[in-house]
């Protein structure tokens, strides 16, 4: 089964250096779950301004890892939170994002560089 992410872009950012790629994966695994946790919390609190800001912040990292299904979902969360319309859809979207990202974290932790 194909991985839900792609390390090629990160690799190109660090000039293909395996050591640096490894460090970047470690950084991603240590920071992104926390960011997603904050986003989930903001959604639970129905704090849509914070939700928008956090979704906006996480977006480039998701893009650079090319986590395809999450790329569109995070944009949807960002747009809904910004417009503050149909915000009831956001928790469900976030649930899907967390599920996919959990799998991403699990597989990335197993990466052998």
């Amino acid at each position: 089964m194909d991985k839900p992410y792609n390390l090629e872009k990160i690799s190109s950012y660090v000039g293909g250096a395996p050591g640096q790629l490894k460090e970047m994966i470690a950084l991603f695994l240590s920071t992104t779950p926390q960011e997603l946790g904050s986003l989930t919390e903001a959604i639970a609190q129905e704090n849509w301004t914070e939700t928008y800001a956090l979704a906006h912040r996480i977006k480039p990292s998701i893009d650079v890892l090319d986590v395809k299904p999450v790329k569109s979902l995070i944009r949807e969360v960002e747009a809904l939170a910004k417009s503050k319309k149909d915000c009831h859809k956001i928790p469900e979207l976030m649930k899907t994002i967390n599920e996919i990202m959990d799998e991403v974290f699990r597989l990335m932790a197993l990466e052998k560089i």
Partner: peptide, 14 residues
């Protein structure tokens, strides 16, 4: 974003 910022930093530091 710590991850993205670090990525840009490392890229420019090439």
């Amino acid at each position: 974003d710590m991850f993205y910022g670090e990525l840009l930093k490392r890229h420019l530091a090439l």
